[in-house]
């Protein structure tokens, strides 16, 4: 979060977190493709030759001036692969809210859990109270034939009773609902902090 009184502008940072291949970049790409180009920046993709996120993806969007204030939302993804632990820590710098993108596929439950532990560790290292921090859970790829039942995902991952959504990000289902809820939670938190 950063408030510029000179411009009456508030910049907020929301990060898509989750294991590799869970659909973080797909979320951002869908949002980029469906938000009015006049309200958003280009999308930045820092990818390997194999189309894997190597550092982060980024897009900024705004909703115009409200009651004299201009909120701007900076959306990032983290690289999900285990080897990019340091990159994830760097991207969490200054984060205001998290959308945790879990892969509903049965074989990915271990990865979902380990990446969540990694997130909690990183947030705590930055002195955030995880239980009070804006986190949204998105259970992505609900159309997979081996998708884990929702109650199992909820019990395994959402230990904070955070807002949660089912999604098929590749089809755009659940993408905007998660983003909107994340923004609303982030603004509520900012209101308490300033």
């Amino acid at each position: 979060m950063f408030i510029n009184y000179g411009l009456n502008q508030i910049d907020l940072k929301i990060v898509y977190y989750g294991p590799g291949f869970s659909g973080k970049t797909t979320n951002l790409e869908w949002a980029h493709a469906h938000i009015d180009p006049g309200l958003r920046s280009d999308i930045l993709n820092l990818k390997t030759k194999e189309d894997r996120t190597i550092f982060f993806d980024f897009m900024q969007f705004e909703v115009g001036k409200i009651k004299g204030l201009t909120p701007k939302f900076n959306l990032y993804t983290v690289p999900g692969q285990d080897i990019y632990t340091v990159s994830r820590k760097i991207i969490l710098n200054g984060v205001d809210g998290i959308i945790y993108v879990a892969d509903s596929g049965a074989p990915r439950m271990r990865d979902n859990l380990f990446t969540l532990i990694d997130l909690v560790k990183n947030l705590r290292a930055n002195k955030h109270q995880v239980e009070e921090f804006p986190i949204i859970f998105q259970y992505n790829k609900r159309d997979l034939p081996d998708a884990v039942p929702l109650p199992v995902l909820r019990k395994t991952l959402n230990r904070f009773s955070a807002p949660e959504f089912e999604a098929c990000a590749a089809k755009g289902e659940g993408v905007f609902e998660c983003l909107k809820t994340a923004i609303e939670l982030v603004v509520q938190r900012v209101t308490k902090l300033v």
Binding site: A31, I35, D36, L39, F61, V63, Y139, L150, P163, E164, F165, E166, F176, E177, L179, K180, T181
Partner: peptide, 9 residues
């Protein structure tokens, strides 16, 4: 109006 709205699970 920008993103659309639906409920959570």
């Amino acid at each position: 109006s920008i993103l659309g709205s639906k409920g959570n699970v």
